[in-house]
Design a protein around this nucleic acid. Sequence first.
DNA 1: TAGGCCATCTGGTCCT
DNA 2: AGGACCAGATGGCCTA
Length: 192
Amino acid sequence: MEEHCYSFEQEDPTSEFLFWDQDPSDELQLDNFLLEDSSLADHLFSWPSSACQPAAPTSPVALSSLLDRAPERVPGAEVDSSPPPGPAAPRPGSAHRRAANVRERKRMLSINSAFDRLRCHVPTFPYEKRLSKIDTLRLAIAYIALLGEILLSGCEPKSYVEQCLKSSLQSHHQATWNTSDLTARLSWIKWD
DNA sequence: TAGGCCATCTGGTCCT
DNA sequence: AGGACCAGATGGCCTA
């Protein structure tokens, strides 16, 4: 978990960090965000920072080159010429093994693309570098907990978060969502 | 240079 | 039987 040190002089006037500064109708959108498919969510709470940039090659050409590339042996990986144990175990380098490797790469690519989509829906610092997978999951868990609390409270999101941040500073209040990761990012949001 | 993060390969297990 | 899923091992890249 990397530390983030940001100067408070460093202000970003763009609207992307005014994340509660929305139309009154956005309460409905908040519901939709929690309930609907991500196709709608894509348009609501996106965080177009560097943390949201896909890192893996996403173009069809790059993708296909990844999937079509010749199988490479991992240097240092076990090289065993003895027959594999059990009748079902394919030999390393066999057609079955190569096909399984391609499927595995495809599977990992789909997981990574899901992470990329998730990164677009969690709050991040301005110019924050791409979140790691584990950070993305932790932040998403905390963020979902916060959104749930807001829904249950019935309060206006902006004032609710402000109040929570204030009380957490004063009384070390520990809500489910109140991780240092999320509160630090929420503190960065300009409300005016 | 050490540590974190990641992609990839691999073999085992589970599921259809 | 074949594919999906999972975890371990390994090496590369990047950053403090």
